[in-house]
Design a binder for these strands. Structure first.
Lengths: 248, 248
DNA sequence: GGCCCTCTTTGACCCAGATCAAGCGCGCGA
DNA sequence: TCGCGCGCTTGATCTGGGTCAAAGAGGGCC
């Protein structure tokens, strides 16, 4: 397995692409200064494991670019993805020793890491960090609960449509485009990873994607490049409330 | 439908049964004082709805006694429970207008409510509250993610065993008994509510409970009174990691 | 250019859990 | 005391998605 390389920051916080969305979003200049003291960047390659569940973590941090997944595995190998980490998402839990889940980079990824101890101390003194972290955690809790509905009650077709909906929305927000009408994006996940997210098998994922394609809900170029001609039709397929579908 | 009655506090915070576990757990005497200014108690009867999803909430609060559920419903009626609120659990989200889920009391229940606006202001000034809320939210996020594994990957039998495990543990902590060896408790949920939690039908819940009974994993007196002769056997059935199974 | 490896698609068949349908039993109100 | 209703159990049957199997489709490396 390749060793990741700790590289010096290629940039200042000031022109960081996730400056206004990550844990540091509310920080003032002096608070950022303090964070910079304990921060460093790490690069991961697609497929590389960031942390194994149970390992002790000596850092927390934010995804700067790329995508990672949070997964849980049972002894017999059944696995369930419990989170999808996109740029600005936070990794790790202040106040906890070990990692609770496996974190794996699914694309090349850059993380902005903070040494855990000093970060925790900083949090005590800097309400702006704790406030933002609370806000982000509440959002993640909402996302997790929405996902519980998907896992518990939706059909395979609805599950796929729900996942596409989420990826399309996140992609749109990231690129500051409205999530409506026609959308184009690349799937950041393999069929197997989608299956792990959705509580399905990869065969079922493949079949349902083919079905959605056949029905004209989506178009595919290659395996990964998706075009959604009509986003509201996709949302109907997802069984979501048929409102405007605005994002948080 | 019966109207709930707003009653004056039957007790001081000082001798509140959830004093050391709720949002107020870390508060000093003077901070408690401030909280008391904006707090009031509400009683709910079994079956009564606390809030409907989408309703505007003018309060947040803690469950003092009794049990409530958090559920999400699709237009066609499919419902998924996304949270089980036991004593000391927090209801509502600071900074959000409307409720995101239906909250229903499944037993008679007492809530300690805080008027939302003043509570939010208090949170700004009182890091102890925000800190504790962050901690509780992180715990809930962990619980939600553990539940995602249950919903996505476990069999019906494992799901039932998992639910019993959780209820038994929570009951044990609440009553300050260790979760090991033989355990006795009452199910706080109907078969239908269990089905909604587990992403199953009530028939399947009933059948699997009968099966666990037949196999001697559990004993039943009446429909609700459960005895677990050997907790570790139940945990095996749940497919959980077979460690000591300590609680958070 | 050819080979191999990983990701994906598609087909055939099977089974866990859903659905449909009876019936039981306990508690409550008349 | 009766009977009604709700929560629960159990049986019979159906089906969506899992399992097993085979083969296409890139893409990178020699």
């Amino acid at each position: 397995m390749l060793q990741d390389e700790n590289v010096k920051s290629p940039q200042e916080c000031a022109d960081c692409p996730i400056r206004h969305r990550a844990v540091c979003a509310r920080c003032e200049a002096d608070e950022l200064e303090a964070l910079e003291q304990v921060k460093y960047y790490r690069n991961f390659e697609a497929g590389q494991t960031v942390i194994w569940s149970g390992d002790t973590m000596d850092f927390v941090g934010s995804v700067v670019s790329g995508i990672a997944t949070l997964t849980q595995t049972m002894e017999d190998g059944r696995t369930q993805m419990v989170g999808l980490l996109l740029p600005s998402d936070f990794v790790g839990r202040p106040g906890r020793e070990g990692a609770a889940y496996d974190v794996v980079a699914t694309t090349d990824m850059v993380m902005c890491c903070f040494r855990k101890k000093p970060f925790e101390q900083l949090m005590e003194k800097t309400p702006h960090i704790a406030q933002r972290l609370l806000e982000m955690t509440l959002d993640e809790l909402d996302a997790a609960r929405e996902w519980m509905l998907v896992l518990g009650r939706k059909t395979a077709r609805e599950k796929i449509a729900s996942l596409l909906t989420i990826i399309a929305r996140r992609d749109a927000t990231l690129n500051l485009r409205p999530a409506e009408g026609a959308l184009v994006f690349d799937l950041p996940l393999t069929r197997e990873a989608m299956a792990d997210y959705l509580g399905l098998t990869l065969e079922t994922v493949s079949r349902q994607i083919s079905a959605l394609k056949r029905d004209g809900i989506i178009h595919l170029e290659g395996k990964r490049h998706v075009t959604i001609p009509d986003f509201s039709r996709l949302m109907e397929e997802a069984g979501d409330d048929s409102d405007g579908g605005m994002l948080a």
